[in-house]
Design a binder for these strands. Structure first.
Length: 424
RNA sequence: GCGGCUAUAGCUCAGUUGUUUAGAGCGCGUGACUGUGGAUCACGAGGCCGUGGGUUCAAGACCCACUAGCCGCCCCA
């Protein structure tokens, strides 16, 4: 027996599976609501390849980040190093540049839906192949109204899915003008407390001091709270940008929490960083992560482009969904045709064809089962009605229509059937 | 990458201090019921006890390794 690759999963229809987190109905709900809501805000879909040249991610994501170390990278037959995408922002920006979309007037607003790959240790809400839905706003503007509208869109999306108990965390991590000076101050403050911090923090002091702020180790907390926050070190432009952003969220009535120690893992972020956390996810409580990445285009060899976007994990969104939000029977057939005898069997196939042409979801017994067994199958499929066809019915020109919920049965002609059930 | 827990039928799980033929419920199949599902009853099929090694007269059980799942760390979606 060959099993699925570690950290991957099969998504099955709810009827055939008990687990709620791998039901295709839930996936379709999460994806469908995204398409619907994003469309309302004028976003268009983009699909980019699952593999890209490794270089794109090395430059876009950063060589020293963990995401980069977790990539599935291999050499193609011609010697080109390619990688399964660990995230999609770099790909979308690449496509934006490659297709000259910077010549479009105004902002280009795109969303994507698809699998991403990271070779991590799997656990709840964390897979090696995982679904992500994201949006990117690209163009020449960094107006904080972009941030505010995107978060408003997420707010509507969560409402659409009846997900409650989430928290929106926002921060500004400055830009190339004010961040270097802040990092210098931060390093100085950390070095004074270095011996009190955990081993991880001591390592990050060298490689990525901003991440020290994010440390969750209990013993570090008292020292972390003494460190200077970036909020106090922002240059005027960044501070104004952040203030306007917050004001716009206030005006929209969207509640948020300022998280001065929130930083993002990838190298390309600047100014706005945000996360949305949920309560049902165990250790992986971040559902949405996003931010501004004004320098990314240039990092991968493109013209100056400003960008803001987010991505969320489909599996984590599904874990956050209310228990009974999908009706597993929504896709059940309207009619199941059961027949007795060869003549009725042929008649049934022809009738099924006409019913489907009329838009009625129809399943015919293909196995020549006895009536009893055929009805049991209809029951198992949660069919609304069973249509029973024998020689009597054919000669009479009407069939026995059995309501599978009540057990009531009545005679109907084909015309009555089509008129009453059209489109069901 | 690190630590902990777990792995027995399609699913959920029992299986005692190591002993002959490994069990239950649900699900599945057949029948009671020749053209009527769900309820009930009877019967039945279905197991390399995760994989490999070790201890022992004897291993589903004990030991080791590996694999996978879950939980935590790290990181992130």
């Amino acid at each position: 027996m060959i099993n699925k690759v570690r950290g991957t999963q099969d998504i099955l229809p709810a009827r055939l599976l008990d687990k709620t987190d791998a039901q295709i109905e839930r996936w379709n709900l999460v994806e469908g609501a995204a398409r619907e809501v994003f469309r309302l805000f004028g976003f268009d879909e983009i699909r980019t390849p699952i593999i890209e040249k490794t270089e794109l991610f090395e430059r876009g994501v950063g060589t020293e980040t963990d995401v980069n170390k977790e990539m599935y990278t291999f050499e193609d037959r011609d010697g080109q190093s390619v990688s399964l995408r660990p995230e999609s922002t770099a790909s979308v920006v690449r496509a934006y540049i490659e297709h000259g979309l910077f010549n479009q007037p105004g902002l280009v607003k795109l969303y994507y839906i698809g699998p991403q790959f990271r070779r991590e240790r799997p656990q709840k809400g964390r897979y090696r192949q995982f679904g992500q839905i994201g949006v990117e706003v690209l163009g020449q503007s960094d107006d904080p109204a972009i941030e505010a509208e995107v978060i408003e869109m997420l707010d509507l999306y969560f409402k659409k899915l009846s997900i409650t108990g989430i928290e929106i965390l926002i921060n500004s991590i400055g830009d190339e003008n004010c961040r270097p000076a802040y990092i210098a101050r931060l390093k100085e403050a950390i070095s004074e407390r270095l011996s009190n911090l955990c081993g991880n923090c001591r390592g990050r002091y060298e490689t990525n001091p901003l991440r020290v702020l994010d440390c969750k180790v209990e013993s570090c907390q008292p020292y972390l709270s003494e460190l200077p926050t970036i909020t106090d070190s922002l240059c005027k432009a960044c501070r104004d940008h952040f203030d306007q952003f917050k004001q716009m969220l206030d005006e929209r009535g969207i509640p948020y929490t300022i998280a001065p120690r929130l930083v993002r893992g990838l190298d390309y972020y600047s100014r706005t960083a945000f996360e949305i956390t949920g309560s049902q996810l165990g250790a992986q409580n971040t559902i949405v992560g996003g931010g501004r990445y004004d320098g990314l285009s240039e990092l991968i060899g493109g013209p100056p482009v400003k960008g803001f976007g987010f991505a969320f994990g489909i599996e984590r969104m599904i874990l956050s969904l209310p228990e009974n939000i999908v009706d597993a029977r929504a896709s059940a057939p309207t009619i199941f045709i059961a027949y007795i005898g060869d003549e009725a069997r042929r008649h049934s196939f022809a009738l099924a064809r006409r019913l489907r042409e009329a838009g009625i979801t129809t399943v015919v017994d293909l196995e020549g089962r006895k009536l009893k067994k055929a009805l049991a199958v209809a029951n198992n499929l949660s069919a609304r009605f069973a249509l029973i066809i024998g020689e009597d019915e054919i000669h009479r020109g009407s069939y026995a229509l059995r309501d599978m919920t009540t057990g009531e049965q009545k005679e109907v002609t084909e015309t009555e059937l089509v008129n009453n059930l059209n489109g069901r």
